[in-house]
Amino acid sequence: MNSMALSIKNLTGSINHHTIEQEINLDLYQGQVLAITNESLGACLFRLILGMGDIGRDSSVEIPHANLHLLHHNEVLQKWRPYFGFASREKGLLSNLTILDNVCLPASYHSAANPVENAKKFLAELEVDQQFLSMRPDFVDESIRKRTLLARALMLNPSVLLLESPATFLNWELQDILERWIEARLAQKVSLIFTSPSAAIITRFANFVLDEKTGILQDDIASYLKQRMHYQDKNTLTPQGDCPK
């Protein structure tokens, strides 16, 4: 039986003037996948989970198997954050480090074993060619930067992956690689929360989708997406909002 990877109760909060007003409740078990169609909401939620914003007074975020609660204390946050592998949409690679050093950094800093070997393995899994490893992020294309972000998210052996639009900047061929990469993570019982406007990737992987109006998980993904698309057609809204990055 899979144990619970993340439990969120009555989560509200704000970061950089972006606010989550509807209470979010979710229990995510190992190997489960949650999709969020609204990138703005997802970006806010990820940062709140990582302890980068101000969460509401009644909110509770917990990693039950590690018996850890989110508390805004620096020492606690440094223990809390390695449980999550976070890959932002496009930013976040250190421009003065090479691709390989960027991936190695979290493991080197937290004294994890074999950082270089693991970094090379994760980059190879995402088919980042060896020739790019010694280059700086500004000298490689977006798809390599994106895959570097994804590879780096794995370095601390996280129990939950938080991925912002994982398929962005990836062509069809690379999306196929990404899908295999996600399957490999799920086989390792890693839980996944991702944002994506793509119905295809959501229906392919997600067990639940977060209803952005109610903050409740929906397991009938097809009807939720259908209803949402109908709502968008009627109101000419796009699924993406402004991303607080």
């Binding site: 980068m52 954050r81 390695p82 690679l93 250190l94 421009s95 780096r152």
Partner: peptide, 18 residues
């Protein structure tokens, strides 16, 4: 300043790097 604009400071925080 550039690191902050590029989200590098935030990325460090997200990795549990002080």
């Amino acid at each position: 300043a550039t690191m902050k604009v590029q989200g590098e400071v935030e990325a460090l925080e997200a990795m549990g790097i002080d």
